[in-house]
Design a protein around this nucleic acid. Structure first.
Lengths: 212, 212
DNA sequence: CTTAATTTGTCCGTATGTATG
DNA sequence: ACATACATACGGACAAATTAA
């Protein structure tokens, strides 16, 4: 009989142990993980099993492996999973609708939160955003929203939004069209004035313009 | 020279080829895929490489493997990817405050959404919830919130909330104390009346009572 | 009930391409 | 140029679980 795991699949255990290892060793994004052979010895598993776990995380875009160099903790924004998941899942309209709605939940909250606090709504960011949408230069919708989420300061919410955006990758592609610009400008002004309700209202109308 | 692409990683090619194989063979959810050895021969790769691709898809929840039986195409509608991704998101210097705030984002949206749609706010659920908080019996805060999230109908949002709630531990543990009950009742009544703003306001006050 | 065949689970050995010093 | 370290990929071997004869 073995010493520990009567429970699960080995490679899932490895995935879990890799997570705790990354946390304990305090490995940051871009830094290197131990080699496969070292991991095999430390975690008490064969190289094949280690590789299966590593490949799974690679497909998710959580790590990046470079031949001859090693395995590196990747930036979660690397949406390699999108192509794969899109092929398998994207036919499901219900799921996509949930993703879209959930993105809007976080976006709307960020808009409201930005207007609520003086330390956020007095940032110079809003002046530059207003200037951008008031100009004739093309402005990407995604950039505007991301800036607002960053300014709002909830990093967890920002990360969730990143993942959902990579997953859906249609809602806010492209530039803000001329008809949208007055609404966006209204939203920014409401934030600067600290009118949270008006900002949320303008955001809702904008979101309604982008996707029916 | 090879027939296709010597450039990309083999196991990613296998993932791609598995997708076309599933489509061509018209394999439905729950049905069985060819065995690993058969796949290795048909796709011209070693069994280890086939397994790496299969495990990746398994971690994504796209397939399910049962020892001694085989590999089966699973129901991909479950957002299992959120579990894995969330586990890795959380590894960072996570401020518990962000977790708490992000939970409230989803909760508040569910409350507003419930009040917005007639098909939701007319559910018998609200009557039973109102009766529960009006009685003297203990009512768990967590149960109330979960019911509202379920009623709101965004399954992805619910899933994210589950994860955050499990991670934050103790945000809404325990029963709704007597001082909270009038506010909760006010929130429920606002939902039933379709007053989205009042419902959101009552929720905010309730959340402020629970954690300072 | 026993036996055999099939399939996944796991590990090992080997060869090769690639990057670093 | 050479040696080292690492990922890449293949194939073999055996264990464990399931199914069917």
């Amino acid at each position: 009989m073995e010493e520990t795991k009567p429970s699960r699949k080995m490679f899932l255990e490895i995935v879990q142990e890799l997570r705790t290892l990354i946390r304990n060793e305090n490995i940051r994004t871009g830094e290197k993980l131990p080699s496969e052979r070292v991991l095999a010895e430390r975690l008490g598993a064969g190289r094949s099993t280690i590789r299966e776990a590593l490949r799974s995380l690679e497909l998710l875009g959580l790590i990046e492996t470079r031949r001859g160099e090693g395995t590196f903790l990747s930036d979660y924004r690397q949406h390699q999973l999108v192509d794969v998941l899109a092929a398998f899942i994207m036919q499901e309209p219900k799921s996509l609708e949930d993703v879209r709605l959930t993105m809007q939940i976080h976006e709307k909250d960020a808009v409201q939160r930005a207007a609520a606090g003086p330390e956020i709504r007095e940032l110079p960011l809003w002046d530059s955003l207003e200037a951008a949408v008031s100009s004739d230069r093309p402005v990407r919708r995604e950039d505007i929203i991301r800036e607002i989420l960053v300014a709002a300061g909830n990093r967890l919410s920002l990360k969730i939004w990143y993942l959902l955006n990579a997953y859906a990758k249609t809602p806010y592609e492209g530039d803000a069209e001329p008809p949208e610009r007055p609404v966006i400008r209204e939203m920014i002004l409401a934030i600067k004035n600290g009118n949270s309700a008006a900002a949320a209202d303008a955001y809702t109308r904008w979101a309604g313009m982008v996707h029916g």
